[in-house]
Measured scan of single mutants.
Amino acid sequence: KITVTFNGEEKARRYYKKMQKHNLKVEIRVENNQWVVHVE
């Protein structure tokens, strides 16, 4: 499981979509004013 933190929504969403293309289970959320993407 990987957790990647971004300081911008745009970058986070781009990464999220990229990971989805690989058929990975991805989850995006905001934690402590940071955009966090969890990849299983």
Rank of each mutant, 00 (worst) to 15 (best):
N23E: 05
I28P: 00
E9R: 08
T3N: 04
R13K: 09
I2W: 15
A12V: 03
F6K: 01
I2T: 08
Y16K: 04
K17R: 12
V37Y: 01
K11H: 14
V39I: 12
E31Y: 07
A12Y: 07
V36M: 05
E27M: 08
Q20Y: 06
G8N: 15
W35T: 01
T5P: 04
F6M: 02
Y15P: 01
V4I: 12
V26F: 02
V30T: 06
N23F: 13
V36H: 04
W35R: 00
K1W: 15
K17G: 04
M19S: 03
W35A: 01
E9T: 02
Q20P: 02
V36I: 12
F6Y: 02
M19H: 03
K18F: 14
R13Q: 07
K21W: 08
I28C: 07
V37L: 03
F6D: 01
V30Q: 14
V4R: 11
R29M: 11
H22Y: 13
F6C: 07
I2H: 11
V39T: 03
E10K: 13
V36E: 04
H38R: 11
K21N: 09
G8S: 15
K17N: 12
N32A: 07
V4A: 06
K11S: 15
K1Q: 09
V26L: 05
V30E: 12
K25G: 05
Y15L: 03
V39N: 01
E9N: 03
V37P: 00
K25S: 09
I2N: 05
F6L: 02
K17T: 10
M19N: 03
E9M: 12
K1V: 12
N23I: 05
Y16I: 06
I28E: 00
E40W: 15
E40N: 10
V37E: 00
E9L: 11
R29G: 08
V26A: 07
N23S: 07
N23Y: 12
T5N: 05
K25P: 04
K25I: 11
N32M: 06
R29A: 12
R14G: 04
Q34Y: 10
V26K: 00
H38F: 11
V30M: 14
N7P: 08
V39E: 00
F6S: 01
R13L: 12
K17C: 15
V4G: 02
R14S: 09
E31V: 12
V37G: 01
V36Q: 04
N32Y: 05
A12N: 02
W35N: 00
I28K: 00
V26E: 00
E31Q: 08
K18P: 01
R14M: 10
V39F: 06
V30R: 13
E40K: 07
W35Q: 00
R29S: 11
I28D: 00
V37W: 01
K21R: 12
M19F: 04
T5A: 09
N33E: 08
K25N: 09
V36S: 04
K17Y: 10
K21Q: 13
N32L: 05
N32R: 06
L24S: 05
F6H: 01
K1F: 13
Y15G: 02
N33K: 06
E27K: 06
E31R: 05
Q34V: 13
H22F: 11
N32H: 08
K25R: 10
N32K: 06
E10H: 09
K18M: 14
R29N: 07
R14P: 01
I2G: 04
E40A: 08
E27G: 04
E40G: 10
N33C: 10
H38D: 12
E31D: 06
K21G: 11
H22Q: 13
R14V: 08
V26S: 03
V36W: 03
H22L: 15
Y16S: 04
H22M: 15
M19C: 12
V39R: 02
H22G: 06
N33S: 07
E10R: 12
K11L: 14
E10N: 09
E9H: 06
R29W: 12
I2L: 12
E40L: 13
I28H: 00
Q20I: 14
E10W: 13
A12F: 06
V4F: 09
V36G: 01
A12T: 02
Y15N: 01
V39W: 06
H38N: 09
H38W: 08
Q20T: 06
